[in-house]
Design a protein around this nucleic acid. Structure first.
Lengths: 137, 137
DNA sequence: AGATTAATCGTAATCATTATCATTTAAAGA
DNA sequence: TCTTTAAATGATAATGATTACGATTAATCT
């Protein structure tokens, strides 16, 4: 997923193209990491001083619904990142210092499904936390 | 882990035995599920109408630090459950209807460590969400 | 350009959580 | 048992993230 793809996807879905929304997407397109909603808000405010909380949060959730972003809870705050669809289903290592992520291709679900017969599995979360090579002392 | 074990552990650590703290532990000892902090607060208030938020939250975090409870973020809220130490390291299926959990013995970490050489892994989260047999229509 | 409708703004409200500090109480020793 | 003392609690306020909403603006269509 890149910026143009994301913009086109929104357009094809009938959403309007706004400066604020483009700026949000632009921020994510430059970063391979999860970013807190409030961080995005602060960033957008540099370009659009009067931007509303509502605009930012509404867009983040909309973009996540449209699978342009993906989200996770970190430290009780919603974080978002560009959806990576270049490879298949995967998980992430997340650096607790800089926030950068590394894709982990292995998914444990197939290993455990047999132990959950009778349970209806809707989704799952597998994340690894630590320090990336650059953030180790 | 059971109620008496938990109480003794707190005592041996030098913490005082209070009615409020015992009540918190008692609630958890009856439930094999994650419970939201605010749910605990409401429950405690039935017995101790004037109980402070602080008391509840402080105790939950203290008990989690002492590994008497374990915690996770669900829907942006902290949830806690009795720490299960009858078996080794494991993960949980969590029913999104009733909140009950089922232990999943498989841990994916050993499968992926080789793909994260150079990364310092601190911890990880693996949770499966869905409906338990009792909560399916 | 005008109409339509989504999107935004401005602001307030909500909700969970954290902080502060005076007071109370449990537990250890005299 | 009485005293001490440090931990724990209560009452309340503050914070921080998120959500809500009516009025206004702006993007797209004809």
């Amino acid at each position: 997923m890149n910026l143009d793809t994301a913009i086109n996807k929104m357009k094809s879905k009938g959403y309007k193209h706004t400066k604020q929304r483009e700026r949000i997407l632009e921020i994510f397109s430059r970063q391979d990491q999860y970013i807190a909603a409030k961080t995005i808000l602060k960033e957008i405010q540099k370009d659009f001083p009067g931007v509303s909380f509502d605009t930012v949060y509404r867009n983040l959730y909309l973009l996540a619904d449209e699978e342009i972003l993906e989200s996770t809870d970190l430290d009780g705050e919603k974080h978002f990142r560009f959806h990576c669809d270049t490879h298949g289903h995967h998980h992430h290592f997340i650096c607790t210092d800089c926030g950068k992520t590394k894709a982990v291709e292995f998914c444990p679900m197939e290993k455990i499904e047999s132990s959950l017969s009778g349970y209806a599995i809707d989704n799952h979360k597998f994340e690894i936390y630590g320090k990336c090579p650059q953030c180790q002392t």
